[in-house]
């Protein structure tokens, strides 16, 4: 029972970490390797707003998300737009931005156990005989909410549908009046806000540390590769596969194998199914 409940919690956490990354890649084929840095930055900004400005928690959280969305859009407009279409340069540029942010934060004094976001909810409840603290429950709730909201957005709004079109065929979308650069900005803003949202619910479970940035990036990349790059359903499925595998290793082997599991998942996927579990695009191409 422990495995089931903590497996679900861990899987949803992974899905949250990966959602922003897969969103940006799915829409504009832009691998945003600054994703982990954005995640940590969101937590840090929220902490600053809480402690320096003394804003109430919900306001600080929302403000942090808005700042992240703007930062993501600015990052695309100012830097990434110049290397569009060159995959290697996109990776190098975004990873460099990520490194600059993370190491900048470290240099600016983000280390040790001093920077902690308080949990929204304290206390715990028993579910099926397992004690779960409320913050972890909140993670699952928010995960479901975000996925549901995203689904509604891409299927039922004009902008969401445009993003979906852009994700499938950029040139066809252009002929219909959908501007690819504008959509990429929207995707980056959304993706960054998602990274921020994940940070705000997950970070209160521990300290805000620079290493979390690298860790989140590895997890996000692992989930996306296993699920099939750019496939949203694939990413969620993969989050559950990796999530449960991690919890199983924690129970059976010890807590140090979480990253090993993620990296192993990448390697195995690349050997057996390079397009990922749900690399549907490729499959379709093969059939037609």
């Amino acid at each position: 029972m422990d495995i089931l409940i903590y497996g679900i919690i861990n899987s949803v956490s992974l899905a949250l970490m990966a959602l922003g990354f897969t969103l940006v890649y799915g829409i504009s084929r832009l691998p945003n390797f600054a994703h982990g840095a954005l995640y940590v930055t969101a937590g840090y900004i929220c902490w600053q707003l809480l402690h320096r400005l003394g804003l109430p928690y919900p306001l600080a959280g929302l403000l942090a998300l808005a700042i992240m969305a703007l930062a993501g859009a600015a990052m695309y407009q100012l830097i990434l737009v110049r290397v569009r279409g060159m995959a290697i340069s996109e990776i190098i540029a975004s990873y460099a931005i990520g490194l600059a942010i993370l190491e900048g934060l470290r240099w600016g004094g983000l280390k040790g156990a001093t920077v902690i976001l308080p949990p929204f909810a304290t206390g715990s409840v028993g579910i099926l005989g397992v004690t779960v603290d409320l913050q972890r429950l909140l993670v699952v709730l928010l995960g479901a909410l975000l996925v549901g909201g995203l689904w509604l957005f891409v299927n039922h709004t004009r902008l969401g549908l445009a993003l979906k079109g852009m994700a499938q065929d950029e040139r066809a979308a252009l002929t219909l009046g959908i501007d690819s650069d504008r959509m990429a900005v929207v995707a980056m803003a959304l993706g960054s806000a998602f990274a921020g949202a994940a940070a705000l619910v997950l970070l209160p479970l521990g300290n805000i540390v620079v290493e979390a940035g690298y860790n989140v990036l590895i997890m996000a990349v692992a989930v996306c590769i296993v699920g099939g790059l750019g496939s949203w359903t694939g990413a969620i499925m993969a989050a559950f596969i990796i999530g449960f595998a991690q919890i199983l290793t924690v129970v059976l082997l010890g807590p140090h194998y979480q990253v090993v599991v993620a990296i192993l998942a990448i390697i195995l996927t690349l050997i057996w199914r390079p397009s990922g579990l749900f690399g549907r695009q490729k499959e379709l191409e093969e059939r037609v």
Binding site: N155, R158, L161, A162, K164, A173, L176, G177, I178, Q281
Partner: peptide, 16 residues
């Protein structure tokens, strides 16, 4: 758009 239904293709077309 290969992964969208016929209806969704048309709705994406209606962006403008």
């Amino acid at each position: 758009f290969p992964e969208s239904s016929v209806m969704e293709n048309l709705r994406i077309g209606g962006y403008l």
